[in-house]
């Protein structure tokens, strides 16, 4: 399939920009919606979240949070800790 080289360039630039934007977005996943104080505390804790902070809810986490930015993930949830414990016990 032969694409117009100009169109190809545009698509490439769009994809790169999209990836960059997504890699700059900080996503916080919690078991319940964040309260205002929690949101403030998180923004203070994570400098990168000052630009944009995305919130998601996952009740399976029980409590705590998971922080994601691009390909980096920081799991501070109860579910994550239980998972770590399981991994340690089954070693």
């Amino acid at each position: 399939m032969n694409l117009d080289p100009h169109l190809k360039d545009e698509v490439k630039k769009f994809l790169i920009r999209k990836m960059r934007e997504e890699s700059e977005i900080v996503t916080v996943v919690t078991a319940q919606p964040l309260t205002a104080s929690q949101e403030t505390a998180i923004r203070a804790l994570i400098p990168e979240s000052k630009k944009e902070l995305n919130q998601e809810v996952d009740t399976s986490l029980i409590a705590g949070m998971i922080v994601k930015k691009g390909s980096k993930i920081l799991d501070l949830s109860i579910k994550g800790r239980l998972q770590n414990l399981q991994n340690v016990l089954t070693k």
């Binding site: 505390a41 922080v67 501070l76």
Partner: peptide, 17 residues
Amino acid sequence: KKITDNIIKNSGKRISL
């Protein structure tokens, strides 16, 4: 909620990603 607050509080001063 209290547990989440404690986790945020005990995570340290800053988290760098």
